[in-house]
Nucleic acid binder design. Structure first.
Length: 404
DNA sequence: CCTCCACAGGAAGCGCAGGAGT
DNA sequence: ACTCCTGCGCTTCCTGTGGAGG
């Protein structure tokens, strides 16, 4: 027997050859230098911001498009180039990138801006008005500020925020503040106050989703750098881009698919990423999405979903409808009963049947369940409800979520 | 045919948290 | 600090609907 106890069990891990060169290139947070098929958008944003070079105030910009269409990547790239240029020519242009998912109130946005413009100072606990003045002061010294508000639809008091920022331009003489708003939500613009809308949307831009060919090109470029040579089969890339294009044209999930496929291959010590790994990865990614959807659901809706899942697992879904047998179909009423039973078991409150129906509609909108109106074979009028995904996975996920 | 069933989904209103106004 | 107001989540009540069953 070799002297096993002198060899650390992690030694093997080091020796194991990875199929990755740099997996960080596939991380969702990584922004590539090259942004293929977005030249038009890059040019458009830079020409909007161009007046700054001549000390003129540019139009505000509102950019929208589905997730993973390159909105953030393009804007930050242009902004960074602008800031670099400003430093080299001493133009006094400053930028602040604010992700409104985390900075979801006017105060927080202002705080983030203040921190960016005064990196040395700490503003924690100062009043909103003070911070606002501080930011304005910065601009008063003849500085031109560009504020990128990513996921701007997440800000609770957008109207107020945009109004304050645009009005600042009237108060200050030499400097300026330009807003770039980014949103996934196509309807967002319509819920704005008309004045906010007109000032924010001085210029509008749409980011179209990528098609399968474009995604293929993007994935090929990334795979070349992230994986070792010859690891990823071309057909695997084609498949991944086809899947992503069909679902949303989202570059981020396409890249995620590739990363997961690589991880699948690595785990089973395969040196190749083929169609098979991509298919497995697709399942994994789907699971992750389900899981994250479930975790954001209100607790009562989780309980309703749990009721549906556990009834499905008990094979209560097998129904005889006008002779033939239907599988996995549940009646609205029996689910409500099961839901109240489960809720009591967990010592939770239960909502009324009416509100439960609202939950059902919501779960359907999320695609977690499928419903059809009852027809012949069933007395009365009810909804036939089916689970959209694997019952056991959903049940496990929710039970974990509720205990936590 | 009428009645009952088993729901769907609209309307009104209630209690509460949190923001605006003073 | 205080009221006032408003939006939200929800309940209660109600009317509507389409097939089953007598």
């Amino acid at each position: 027997m070799p002297d096993e106890h002198t060899e650390n069990i992690f030694e093997k891990e080091l020796l194991k050859e990875s199929i990755f060169v740099d997996r960080n290139l596939l991380s969702p947070h990584f922004t590539p230098k090259e942004l293929p098929f977005r030249e038009k958008q890059i040019n458009e944003i830079s020409s909007i911001l161009a007046p700054l070079v001549h000390k003129k105030k540019p139009n505000n910009l509102f950019a929208y498009g589905k997730p993973g269409a390159g909105k953030t990547a393009v804007t930050t790239k242009v902004l960074n180039q602008l800031l670099e240029f400003s430093v080299s020519k001493n133009l006094g242009i400053f930028g602040s990138y604010v992700n409104c998912r985390t900075h979801n109130k006017k105060y927080r946005v202002m705080l983030k801006m203040a921190k960016d413009f005064y990196p040395e100072e700490n503003f924690l606990g100062f009043s909103a008005a003070f911070i606002y003045e501080k930011v304005l002061d910065f601009a008063r010294r003849g500085k031109d500020l560009v504020i990128v508000l990513d996921e701007i639809d997440k800000v609770k008091d957008v109207d107020d925020l945009v109004y304050s920022l645009t009005r600042a331009n009237d108060e200050i003489k030499s400097g300026s503040i330009t807003i770039i708003g980014i949103s996934n939500n196509l309807m967002f613009k319509e819920q704005l106050d008309p004045r906010t809308k007109s000032s924010l949307c001085e210029h509008e831009m749409v980011f179209p989703p990528y098609n399968a060919n474009e995604l293929k090109e993007i994935l090929t470029q990334r795979a070349q750098k992230a994986f070792k040579q010859g690891v990823v089969e071309e057909s695997a890339i084609s498949l991944a881009s086809a899947i992503a294009a069909q679902e949303s044209g989202d570059a981020r999930t396409a890249v995620m698919l590739l990363l997961r496929a690589g991880e699948v291959a690595e785990r089973k010590n395969s040196s190749k990423v083929t169609d098979e790994e991509v298919k497995k990865a697709k399942n994994k990614v789907e699971e992750e999405i389900i899981l994250s959807m479930i975790s954001t659901l209100p607790q009562q809706e989780q309980l309703v979903l749990l009721a549906i899942a556990s009834l499905s697992l008990q094979n209560k879904g097998i129904k005889k409808i006008t002779g033939h047998i239907e599988e996995g179909v549940l009646f609205s009423g029996e689910i409500y009963e099961e839901y109240t039973r489960i809720s009591k078991a967990y010592k939770e409150e239960t909502v009324s049947a009416r509100w439960y129906r609202e939950y059902i509609s919501e779960l359907e909108m999320y695609g977690l369940i499928l419903t059809t109106a009852s027809g012949k074979g069933i007395r009365g009028q009810t909804r036939l409800i089916k689970l959209g995904f694997d019952a056991k996975k959903i049940k496990d996920a929710i039970e974990k979520e509720i205990i936590a």
